[in-house]
Measured scan of single mutants.
Amino acid sequence: MASQGTKRSYEQMETDGERQNATEIRASVGKMIDGIGRFYIQMCTELKLSDYEGRLIQNSLTIERMVLSAFDERRNKYLEEHPSAGKDPKKTGGPIYKRVDRKWMRELVLYDKEEIRRIWRQANNGDDATAGLTHMMIWHSNLNDTTYQRTRALVRTGMDPRMCSLMQGSTLPRRSGAAGAAVKGVGTMVMELIRMIKRGINDRNFWRGENGRKTRSAYERMCNILKGKFQTAAQRAMMDQVRESRNPGNAEIEDLIFLARSALILRGSVAHKSCLPACVYGPAVASGYDFEKEGYSLVGIDPFKLLQNSQVYSLIRPNENPAHKSQLVWMACNSAAFEDLRVLSFIRGTKVSPRGKLSTRGVQIASNENMDAMESSTLELRSRYWAIRTRSGGNTNQQRASAGQISVQPAFSVQRNLPFDKPTIMAAFTGNTEGRTSDMRAEIIRMMEGAKPEEMSFQGRGVFELSDERAANPIVPSFDMSNEGSYFFGDNAEEYDN
């Protein structure tokens, strides 16, 4: 993207840094990872977990959730003011799984939030270390993106479920800051804005008074975040219109849905970061690795190297396929839920299948599930090659597409044709070009129609051997075009429920 120079890199967003050079960025990201790792080690000690239990991804998720809940100030305040039966607002906890007599047992633990905050700050040299908290939120978000298709949420806001490739980060909490905003897809931002506008339509006082002023500035800020994701002048001009509207209503909703559809071809720039579970960072720190000293990046080879040398386990339900569970977590670790499966298959070195073909449910185990038949197995999170994460949407291309997802959002900077089903997408653009945004709409449609099938995206960008740390010898991959490109292809993934 041309304006790259004016933006802070995501590592800076990730670490609240002012302008830093590459070495400083690597050190501050490393410091953040160190903090998460030290916190995780301490929690495993508190909970008396064995090494194996500490490497269980379900335990990692519970521990991450506990610290996120302990620092969720708004919710904590709300819980104190609106006490609900049987919930102690000062405590947080969740299921911890232990191996007892050759069987997995679930144990519900409860801790004072104050105590968890103390352990977290102690692991982070006394700081609140917001960057580390956001990092864990993005890992949870990436896992949700890989596990669930947001059909219901899309339909509720009037969008087409086939636009799911635009929904990265749709389950990120509001408090995820600049680093969170960077990884949100165009569809996620559109959905947040539509929800806001709908509230304004239904509630006369939404934009009024002292609160209304705050609401208005939040609305304009979200519009600017979305505008910054678009790469064409016409899309940005249309966002200006939406932002400046005196009284946002149905016309703005129409414009936003139009823009979301246009992003299936004229893709937005959305950041991709490899955020790993805390149970990967903990053992690495415990083994003596100093992330701050060595430096770390979320968008280069580092996460690949770390996963190459990590042992992570997962509980497996009786009829689940461990290899499929591994694929789910591998995609989440690489922030690749909406990437082209052919690119992923090449990088991973084994075939990556669409969601609907995987015999696996989510990673988390519900409290009512029976533990008797639970097994555990090693997650295979290694890769054959590594590639640089991208934040450009890439230019655009036609490809055989599917009944489910009709476009992709690249996660890796790797040369390819970008699949999208042009006739299906263009069919949504018939007729409606009147109104105050008509010239911009016409211009956007013209650009979409001009998108050429034979153009290559990320020209000359390749993948790298894991021994090639400096990215000196790019390998331009070859793809098996007979395979499906979309992950949520004609899909039956479970729906995400809060």
Rank of each mutant, 00 (worst) to 15 (best):
M1G: 10
M1I: 04
S3E: 08
Q4A: 00
K7F: 11
E11G: 03
M13W: 10
E14W: 07
E18C: 13
R19A: 07
Q20A: 05
Q20V: 13
T23R: 00
E24T: 02
G30P: 02
D34F: 00
D34I: 01
I36D: 00
I36W: 10
G37D: 10
R38Q: 08
C44E: 09
D51A: 00
E53A: 06
E53P: 00
G54A: 02
L56E: 05
Q58A: 05
S60D: 07
R65P: 01
V67R: 10
N76W: 00
K77Y: 01
K77S: 15
E81I: 00
P83R: 00
P83V: 00
S84R: 05
P89G: 00
K90H: 02
K91C: 05
I96C: 04
I96F: 06
Y97N: 13
R99I: 02
K103G: 00
R106A: 13
E107S: 01
L108R: 01
V109G: 05
Y111Q: 15
W120H: 06
R121M: 04
D128C: 12
A129E: 06
A131F: 04
A131Q: 15
L133Q: 12
H135K: 05
M136Y: 04
M136F: 00
M137F: 10
L143C: 10
N144H: 04
D145V: 13
Y148Q: 08
R150Y: 10
R150D: 10
A153N: 13
L154D: 06
V155C: 14
V155Q: 00
R156M: 08
T157L: 03
D160F: 14
M167F: 06
S170G: 06
T171Q: 14
L172W: 06
L172Q: 02
P173F: 01
R174G: 05
S176P: 14
G180W: 07
A181R: 00
A182T: 13
V183R: 04
G187E: 14
G187S: 04
M191T: 15
I197Y: 13
I197Q: 06
G200Q: 07
W207E: 10
E210K: 04
E210S: 02
R213L: 03
K214E: 14
K214C: 08
T215E: 12
R216G: 14
R221G: 14
Q231N: 00
T232H: 15
A233R: 01
Q235W: 11
R236W: 13
A237R: 01
M238E: 02
M238W: 06
D240N: 15
R243P: 02
E244N: 15
R246M: 07
R246S: 02
P248Y: 07
G249A: 04
A251C: 10
A251H: 10
E252R: 11
L256R: 05
L256W: 08
L256G: 04
I257V: 12
L259Q: 01
L259A: 01
A260N: 10
S262R: 09
L266H: 06
S269W: 10
K273G: 07
C275P: 10
P277S: 13
A278L: 06
V280E: 15
V280R: 12
Y281A: 09
Y281P: 09
A284Y: 13
G288I: 10
Y289I: 14
E292F: 06
K293S: 04
L298W: 08
I301Q: 06
I301V: 05
F304I: 14
Q308S: 15
N309Y: 05
S310K: 14
S314D: 12
S314N: 08
L315C: 15
I316C: 00
P318S: 06
N319H: 15
E320F: 10
E320V: 07
N321A: 01
N321Y: 15
N321V: 02
A323G: 04
Q327S: 15
A337G: 02
D340F: 11
D340K: 04
F346D: 15
R348M: 08
G349P: 10
L358K: 11
L358R: 12
R361Y: 08
G362D: 06
G362T: 08
G362A: 05
V363Y: 15
I365R: 05
E369C: 11
S376D: 15
S377R: 09
S377A: 15
T378M: 00
L379A: 04
L381T: 14
S383E: 05
R384F: 04
Y385P: 10
Y385G: 00
T390F: 02
G393L: 04
G393R: 08
T396W: 00
N397P: 07
R400F: 12
A401M: 08
A403V: 03
S407P: 10
Q409A: 00
F412E: 15
F412R: 03
V414Q: 03
R416W: 12
N417S: 02
L418I: 00
L418R: 06
F420N: 00
I425T: 06
M426H: 01
T430C: 12
T433Y: 00
G435K: 08
G435Y: 11
S438T: 06
R446F: 05
R446I: 06
G450Y: 09
E454F: 09
E455H: 13
E455M: 08
E455C: 15
S457G: 05
F458D: 10
F458G: 10
R461W: 14
V463F: 02
D468E: 05
D468C: 04
E469L: 05
P474W: 05
I475V: 01
I475P: 04
V476R: 09
S478G: 12
F489I: 14
D491T: 02
A493E: 03
A493D: 10
E494Y: 14
E495D: 03
Y496R: 15
Y496G: 00
D497I: 15
